[in-house]
Amino acid sequence: MAASGTQGTGVQHMAPLTFHHRRSGRGRTAGAIMLIVMLAGCARPVHTQPDGQVSICGRTVHTGAMVPVVQHLAADAPAEPQPAAPVLPSPIDESSYNQLQYVRLTDSCKAGAVVTVEPPGSARLGITFPAADGRPAGIGLLVTHPVTVHAWSGGHDLGSAGLN
């Protein structure tokens, strides 16, 4: 911005600088695509941020310098029946969020999921991101050996994710 003068109050007013340049049709298209991708990313309930944070359903954890990845479930074929109860690994006494692998279980923060981690002895539960109904919408696991995370909501198979 460029200064345009001062008034008697000592406040300096700034006039905007403008830049005029020609953009090719390809440049405008690429710019529009980037804007759509950025806006679509803002609408998702999961955020991974370069400053080392994971936010799911209003709960945020800081992972330090690590840029966390939140994995999503892949649809199962064929769908599996919902278990009577969740199967989760034992919790970690004191969690270091930069060592966890994060999984988003549901697309909504209204209803969480019944979740299983198989085998449960191959991971430890570091954090749960609860939905409004108290069930997890996301989890963070410290994985020691390969596990499969599986989730159901309302009796519907939401899918699974393999973690190493």
Rank of each mutant, 00 (worst) to 15 (best):
I92K: 11
G155S: 04
T106N: 08
G138I: 02
H13W: 10
D133L: 06
L163Y: 05
T18Q: 15
Q101K: 09
R135H: 15
A32E: 03
I139P: 04
S55M: 03
I33P: 02
G31K: 01
L73R: 05
C42V: 15
L158T: 12
A32H: 11
T6I: 10
P68Y: 01
D107R: 13
P68L: 00
W152H: 14
R23C: 12
P50H: 11
I33N: 05
V69N: 05
A74R: 12
V37E: 11
P45Y: 01
V143E: 07
A113F: 06
Q12I: 15
E94Q: 07
L100T: 05
P45A: 00
A32F: 09
R22E: 14
G155F: 03
G25W: 06
S24W: 09
T148H: 03
V70P: 02
P146C: 03
G31D: 13
V114T: 15
P83L: 05
P146Y: 00
S55Q: 05
Q53K: 09
G121W: 00
T128C: 09
R28I: 11
A2Y: 10
G154E: 11
K110I: 10
M38V: 12
Q49C: 11
R22W: 15
G5D: 06
R28E: 14
N98V: 00
P91Y: 13
P119A: 08
L141Q: 14
V46A: 14
A84V: 10
S90K: 11
T63V: 05
R28G: 02
H150T: 14
A65P: 07
G31M: 02
G154W: 04
R124F: 08
S55A: 10
G155I: 01
T9Q: 13
T128M: 14
P91S: 14
M14I: 07
A32M: 12
G27R: 08
E80S: 13
A85M: 07
L88M: 07
A131D: 06
G27Q: 15
D133S: 01
Q49M: 11
Y102C: 01
S96F: 12
G126E: 10
D76M: 06
R135M: 15
I36C: 01
R22S: 10
G126R: 09
C57H: 07
V117M: 13
H20Y: 05
P119T: 06
R28H: 13
S55E: 08
Q53R: 15
G25A: 15
G27I: 03
L39E: 04
A151P: 09
A113R: 06
T116K: 12
G138T: 02
P136R: 09
H156R: 14
G58K: 04
L142A: 06
D133N: 13
W152V: 12
V67W: 10
L100Y: 01
S24T: 15
T48Q: 14
V61Q: 06
T9E: 09
S55H: 03
H21Q: 12
S160T: 10
D93T: 06
T48L: 02
L142I: 01
L125I: 07
V87G: 06
I92N: 04
D157S: 08
A111D: 15
